[in-house]
């Protein structure tokens, strides 16, 4: 199945870095959103999106709220979600796990870690 990623981050720099990293590991299809609110709009308007990579700290709707919102709908209950964030405290990671994020990357990250986490998520799907 061809993957189309939704990359959600309020930092333009980080969106580009995630996008470049995806290209570096062989994924070309992605759309971008600057916060959780925009992400929800894009997600509801594009059925071809089948993987979400999101930051945590964002204005309007945070990454965690985005995850909870996605998980609250039947349509996206099993949509793969990878969180890429600066938050590395145990309680943060546990909170993400409780919100049913599929996997978690602490910034800064390498394309290799990104590939590893995407592969893990796809393997467990």
């Amino acid at each position: 199945m061809a993957l189309k990623f939704l990359v959600v981050d309020d930092s333009v720099t980080m969106r580009r870095i995630v996008a470049n990293s995806l290209k570096a590991i062989g994924y070309e299809a992605f759309v971008e959103a600057g916060d959780g609110k925009e992400a929800l709009t894009k997600l509801s308007g594009d059925d071809s999106i089948n993987f979400v990579i999101t930051d945590w700290n964002m204005p309007e709707v945070s990454g965690l709220e985005l995850v909870k919102s996605i998980r609250s709908t039947d349509k996206f209950a099993k949509l793969p979600i990878l969180m890429v964030t600066t938050r590395g405290l145990k309680e943060d990671i546990v909170e993400a796990l409780q919100a049913r994020v599929n996997n978690y990357i602490v910034k800064p990250f390498t394309p290799q870690i990104l590939r590893e986490k995407i592969d893990q998520i796809l393997a467990s799907a």
């Binding site: 204005p59 590395g88 405290l89 990671i93 602490v106 800064p108 870690i113």
Partner: peptide, 19 residues
């Protein structure tokens, strides 16, 4: 809300290993 006050630029794998 929009930032992590504990954000650090660390290449140490400790936090990733914890995750």
């Amino acid at each position: 809300a929009t930032f992590n006050p504990d954000a650090r630029y660390e290449k140490s794998p400790d936090k990733q290993e914890l995750a």
